[in-house]
Amino acid sequence: MIALLQRDLRLATRAGGGFGLALVFFLILVLLVPFGVGPDTAVLAKIAPGILWLGALLACLLSLDRLLALDWEDGALELLATSPLPMEAVIALKALAHWLTTGLPLVLVAPVLGLMLNLPGAGYIWLTVSLALGTPTLSMIGCFGAALTVGIKRGGLLLSLLVLPLYVPTLIFGAEVARRGAEGLELATPLLLLVGISCGTIALLPFAAGTVLKMNLR
């Protein structure tokens, strides 16, 4: 298991440089927002939590089609299917590797970008917390979507169409935590709901994704 995780991490960080691309995308998105809505700091401060959450979500989406497609093309997935490791574990590890290479850097860099968007002081910690709790879910849901579309040529657009509606609950609660945090409101309810969705997704979706991948490999 650890070998597989290490392999995925190594592939993501070295070959072709998928790593860091999502971060740059995130940065560009944040750079583009003031061009779109104007440089008024009050407006930017108000929309900063939402923009950062949306940016993280889109950056996550960007790297999803590489998640399984490369292993599918060179046959590594079929080898993994014949290995003693159950498919559900393989998928969960893939999601973990995806989160470590995209989600976690996004979480770490988000406060810095929050600074650029004039995020109010109390917002930083809750933005980071909500992203840290929410991005694993995004990776897991994305893994499910990638498993669905893995056999399809040029499935990238379809993948976004399938995955984005599934992101809705996570985005709502995550952005709500960040917004309430920035405005200094009470935020226990959305935080708990976000954690609930994260736990439920991470516990159950590997089974669905594993089943889907087995269907695709059959």
Binding site: L166, P169, I172, A208, T211, V212
Partner: peptide, 25 residues
Amino acid sequence: ADLTSMLCLVGSVFALLSRYAVNFW
């Protein structure tokens, strides 16, 4: 048929979640 069925199952759960999440929002 297999893949869409799985999408329908997972989608149902998330549609339900979204339905109540937007209430909150």
